[in-house]
Design a protein around this nucleic acid. Structure first.
Lengths: 227, 227
DNA sequence: ACCTGAACACCGTTCAAGT
DNA sequence: ACCTGAACACCGTTCAAGT
């Protein structure tokens, strides 16, 4: 008797918490049930099924991005894009195990481009860019380029951050390889260039690359606007 | 008695064929068994489990990229990158249902950046860029930027191409909405800008965007080289 | 050496029954 | 109105048994 009173929001939040901890493949209706202190099949009274549940999680994950976005206005479309980019990056970094849902869950329409798939955010983006005076074809072009950019960078960052520090599927035998991992099962002898560049390859430059790439994309839009 | 003689390659090919047709979530060991005309659990004699099976599919999917890549040499590193980019794009377009495995399956090491995750291809890329005279830190930088770029563009293209033309999960009731689909469950009244730009949004400019973005990335590398 | 078939522990989902 | 519990059809994986 711990306060049941199930509802859509409580379920979505619990599912997100569970995914943050154990990953989305480990989430089952039954486990989420016991996680909620309820008999599992009670969830179906509030959400249509597992697929719909993951859609709820995704929406909860992304709904925070558009909130408070208006305050960032009044500057420039460049600053506005920077703001959105960093907000979505925060989501990807804070929820690395949940973020890949943006690509796993099929969007509601084919012209929706993850990770910008929340309709309110799309509306906000298109409307705001228009208000800053960008022509319509340019507005749509920015939406599409921007999505691709975020997708590429953030999915890779999330994969990196969300990778289990725990051992891979094949359990480690104690007698072999107490190595620090990054070249565990990779034969460096047959890939000498990888070996020689291993130091550089292991450097994590995600944040710089993100900032540089974002700047470059904005520069490219500016150049297009002038031509 | 149709020639069984199971082996790793035949299994991987059959799994890829199955995924191309039905998607990777529908692939089960049992279904693949009957698809191969074999008693399902026979697969375990050749691959360790479902996860390993998907890794095999992924490897088969990408192994073709590095083959015949040497012939493209002798030109310039720009042409070389263009060649790889288009080869990987071909894979994404020809196997839209299988391509998302590049992000679903965790890579063997954290410094590996999908979709360029085949070790032979990574070795080839790093070595070749070096031979063209790029400095080491630039070589690694190109690997990373290039991966992000391909990831963003190709995953979105694959999602678009692989989306089921069949109805979504919620079966369509006959009396409502015989609409052509792209705005099926989306309320356009609350998203007027989306409505006004719907014509532009539905245009498929994936290929142009890919070519333009690729060119821009290469230009950026050239500029970095001169500075 | 390779495949089979029964078995185990888990799934998503449905539905009649409880309160 | 909301939750329960049994049931059904499926899973991945193990293992002794067949040939």
């Amino acid at each position: 008797m711990v306060r049941t009173h199930l509802n859509r929001e409580r379920i979505a939040q619990a599912a997100l918490d569970f995914i943050d901890e154990h990953g989305s493949v480990s989430l089952s209706m039954r486990k989420l049930g016991t996680y909620l202190g309820v008999e599992a099949m009670a969830i179906y009274r509030h959400v249509e099924g597992r697929e719909a549940l993951l859609d709820c999680v995704l929406q909860r994950l992304m709904s925070g991005v558009v909130d408070g976005l208006d305050e960032a206005l009044g500057q420039s479309w460049q600053g506005y894009l920077q703001d959105i980019a960093h907000r979505i990056r925060d989501v990807a970094i804070r929820h690395p195990k949940a973020f890949p849902l943006v690509v796993t869950q099929h969007p509601a329409a084919p012209w929706i481009r993850p990770p910008i798939r929340d309709l309110d955010l799309i509306e906000h983006l298109l409307r705001t860019l228009r208000e800053y005076g960008l022509p319509d074809d340019m507005v749509v072009d920015v939406y599409q380029s921007f999505s691709s950019f975020l997708m590429g960078h953030l999915l890779l960052e999330a994969m990196h951050a969300g990778a289990d520090p725990t051992a891979p599927a094949t359990a480690i035998r104690e007698e072999e390889a107490p190595a620090p991992a990054p070249f565990g099962r990779i034969n460096l002898d047959t890939h000498p260039t990888v070996q020689e560049l291993s130091g550089l390859l292991q450097r994590n430059t995600s944040e710089e690359q993100f900032e540089i790439g974002l700047e470059a994309m904005i520069d490219r839009i500016e150049a297009n606007l002038r031509s």
